[in-house]
Simulated scan of single mutants.
Amino acid sequence: MALVRYNPWQELNAHLSHINGLLGDTRVPSARIGRDFIRVPAAELHETDDAIILLLELPGLEAKDLDIQVTEDAVHISGERKSETKTENNGTTSSEFYYGKFQGVIPLKARIQNTNVTADYKDGILNLTLPKSEQEKNKVVKVNLEQPAA
């Protein structure tokens, strides 16, 4: 039986190479569905007493390219960034832009009134104001403390 010197760095390098392959394109968040990557827009949630404010980063898109559906407990968004084809005779074009379809579902922590949602889309930022339902606004839970038996 031959002795083989163990090199822990070789194993670590193999793992790092594998992880880098999985996370190769980290500029845009993505989710893997089957064999395809579906891009998910970056989101930010802010909750107040009366509403949930949802900001979505969607640069380079027009409002007509977006489909937003709001239920009582989630926001479903999908859209497509269409590529503009440019041809150049003398030179090369390099692009890091992502073109194609994207979709995402953002679960909400509280029930909302999905009939009173307001939206504002400016400079590639979609701002959704999702008012909470009256039951969520007035939700008070009474805590009963039992006295220990003496």
Rank of each mutant, 00 (worst) to 15 (best):
K139M: 11
V40G: 05
N7W: 00
E136V: 10
T118S: 14
D65L: 07
L58T: 00
D49G: 07
E47S: 15
D67N: 05
Q113M: 12
K142T: 12
L66W: 03
R27M: 09
L23G: 00
A14D: 02
D67L: 12
R35Q: 15
R111G: 05
E62T: 09
K132P: 06
E47F: 11
S83C: 08
L45D: 04
L108D: 11
T26V: 09
D49Y: 10
N114E: 09
L130M: 09
A150T: 12
N116S: 14
I77G: 06
I112V: 01
T118N: 03
L56S: 11
K86F: 06
Q135N: 14
Y98Q: 15
S30K: 13
P8I: 02
P29L: 01
A63D: 05
P29M: 04
A31T: 13
S133P: 11
A150Q: 14
F37K: 11
T71F: 02
R27A: 11
A119H: 14
K109I: 06
A43K: 10
N89F: 13
K122P: 08
F97W: 14
T26W: 09
S30Y: 08
L23N: 06
L22M: 09
P131G: 01
L55K: 12
Q69Y: 04
I38N: 13
T26D: 04
E80T: 10
N20E: 00
N138E: 09
L16A: 13
I112K: 01
N116T: 02
N127K: 09
A119F: 07
I53F: 11
S94N: 12
G104F: 13
S133T: 12
I68W: 03
L54R: 08
L58H: 01
